[in-house]
Amino acid sequence: MLLQALKDSQIMDNEIKKLMIPHEKVAHVQSNNPLDHALLVLIKSGYTAIPVLDTDYKVQGQISKAQILDSILGIERIEMERLHDYKVDEVMSNKVPRMNQNETFGKALMLSINHPFVCIEDDEQSFIGIMTRRSILALIHRHLGK
């Protein structure tokens, strides 16, 4: 019933480019940044995970607070002094949902089930923004609330 309501509203065919948060407004880190920098960006942004990019703005993966804390977890305490010993690319996950800017909302919805955000790329695979699970759910709510 819900799926049929979404299909009837034509929301599934919307292009995601119109719905994404542009890269200028997205917190991210580079793969060669130290973990202390990544943790600072995550804390300041309030996000639990952010994209990891290379110097050419290509998506390399994602990094989360949990991954960072797990990497410095000692036997008896969290070893904060080790944060600067690691680079983001040593801890990040390479599995990050991504899609082309011209693909439809239906794909973004499916990818967001298991991820807090979906990276959006242009035709040259350069990072141009994200769609968050929150923005996806807000759009669905607006369409179903009519």
Rank of each mutant, 00 (worst) to 15 (best):
V52L: 03
N102Q: 14
L40F: 14
L83C: 07
Q125R: 09
G106Y: 12
D89Y: 14
H23F: 15
R77Q: 13
V59H: 10
G129L: 03
L109Q: 00
N102K: 15
H37T: 11
G129A: 00
A138R: 13
K44Y: 08
Y86V: 01
L83I: 02
Y57N: 15
I21D: 05
L2N: 07
E121R: 07
I16D: 04
M131R: 02
F127E: 07
L39Q: 02
V118G: 03
S31T: 10
S64D: 04
M80H: 07
H115M: 00
R134D: 06
L40I: 08
A138S: 14
H23C: 11
L139A: 08
H84N: 13
H28E: 04
L73E: 11
P51D: 11
M131S: 10
R142K: 12
M110V: 01
T104P: 05
I136V: 06
L6T: 03
I50L: 06
V59L: 14
I43E: 10
K7F: 05
M1C: 06
Q60G: 01
L83N: 03
E103S: 05
L35Q: 08
S64G: 07
L3R: 11
F105L: 09
A38W: 05
S64T: 09
I68C: 09
D89F: 14
I68P: 06
D70E: 13
S9K: 08
R98A: 04
D123I: 06
I43Y: 12
L83K: 03
N102F: 15
M12G: 09
L73I: 02
D56I: 08
N100H: 14
R82M: 11
G129Q: 08
V59F: 10
P116G: 02
Q62Y: 12
L19Y: 11
F105N: 13
S45I: 01
A5I: 07
E103C: 09
G145E: 15
S71E: 11
A138G: 08
V26D: 01
V96I: 11
I75S: 12
L53D: 01
A108P: 01
A49S: 15
H28K: 10
G129R: 03
I21H: 02
N32M: 04
N100S: 15
Q10V: 02
C119D: 00
N100E: 10
H141E: 15
I50P: 00
E15N: 13
V41K: 08
K95C: 00
R82S: 03
Y86E: 10
S126N: 13
L39F: 12
E121Q: 10
S45N: 08
Q67A: 14
D123P: 01
I50E: 04
I113D: 00
M99G: 01
V29A: 07
A138M: 14
I113F: 03
D122K: 02
E79Q: 13
A5W: 06
V88M: 10
A49D: 00
L2C: 02
A138V: 12
D70K: 13
E24K: 14
K95D: 01
S31E: 15
H143P: 01
R82H: 04
L2M: 15
G145L: 15
I128A: 10
R142E: 15
R133T: 01
Q60F: 09
N33G: 04
L42C: 03
L35K: 05
S112C: 04
K17E: 13
L69H: 02
S71W: 05
I130K: 02
K95H: 08
P22Q: 09
V26L: 09
G145P: 07
H23N: 09
I63A: 05
K44W: 03
S135W: 07
G145Q: 14
M110I: 02
